[in-house]
Amino acid sequence: MGSPLKCDLCSKPATVHLTQIVNNKVHKVDLCEACAQAKGVTDPNGFSLADLLMKASLTNEPTATSATRCEQCGFTQAEFKKHGRFGCPHCYETFAAIVEPMLGTMHKGTTHTGKVPARAVSRKSLHDRLSALEGELDNAIKSERYEDAARYRDEIVQVKQAFAPKAEGESLRP
């Protein structure tokens, strides 16, 4: 018999052993009693093996010196390594280079093919429309097409109005 397995998180003797196969790759996690407790392995609601695996792979990685900081929320790569959680939705763009390779081992695929929230998507397309119009407006002004410019300006106002949040609860109140 070899030496007893050590806890992946703190290197005390491991007593809890978990195996998981994701995308035909076997992942093993060994934990001591204390870490298993702390990580919620005993909590039916709060435990995620993928989560543990992710943290283990993050701590094994040589520390990158990247000082990337999320412009929206100030989150850093070091914080992500520590917590395994992001600071805000925008962090996914900021840290795309770290996230992307992780997703392949964690999930079935790397792009979303499920439900699409109608409103978030229309907001996105409005946003795209707005930047396009602003480009057109600039061009029109530069080339002194003032009638066109006025038309673009009106359209921009309309698009911006469509952005404004709907009045609360009109459809769902009885």
Binding site: S48, G84, P89, Y92, V99, H112, R119, A120, S171, L172
Partner: peptide
């Protein structure tokens, strides 16, 4: 609920969550 709240969503990654899992 989505009628009332602006969800964080990316066409590429779907619903954006605190943990990538």
């Amino acid at each position: 609920l989505e009628e009332k709240l602006d969800y964080a969503f990316s066409p590429r990654w779907g619903y954006l969550t605190a943990c990538p899992t």
